[in-house]
Amino acid sequence: MKMFMMTRMRIFMAQNKLPRRAVLSGIVAALLWSGLPAYALTKSAAKTLINQAVDDINAMVASTDDEEIILAEFEKIFERYADVNLIARYALGAEARRATPKQMKKFTRVFKIYMARKYGSRFREFMGSDIIVKDSKKVKSFYKVTAEAKLQNANPFEVEFLVSDKSGKPLFFNIFIEGINMLLSERAEIGALLDKNGGKIDRLITALEATL
């Protein structure tokens, strides 16, 4: 991205000396050369992503009562809108550096199901509640999209989704529910399970699979 910006700057600086057509084709070439994510993630794109995710969750919940179907659907939604690879790596913490690609792949697969089940059943409790996406704000290199969940007979609470395109496309990589950081919670959980299993990744994966 930085490279692309610099190229574009140079092209603009040279604009006076170059015929317009050459400049235009230069920009096009630069766009093509810099690869697919040749756009910067915008405030509204981040908001749109979370709106779509929330719509999918609401539609899924409205369509069925079957717990198994809901959890399977939730897993798909999680896969579509979240940077699952990054979340799994973060949860494993420093240990992810020692994991082989094969272990990492297996862990990510099991972790994804674990997350979908855990948060899927949490979201089921919000049923009958409305999640309204409110605002989107740039923080550091990503966007924070704020939503409000309105429950029946209870105070509304705040949910923040952090969205980044550093994986190559816009995806959310963390959720804060009333200030509770999902990544931190999961790193503590997976860390505790790793300790219980003598720090062995293979045993951790088996143990995590057993909780499903």
Partner: peptide
Amino acid sequence: FSLGGRDEDVYDDPYEDLY
């Protein structure tokens, strides 16, 4: 969170400092 006054530091960037 309820006391307020959290700053941007609570939002770590895991892409920068994954481990």
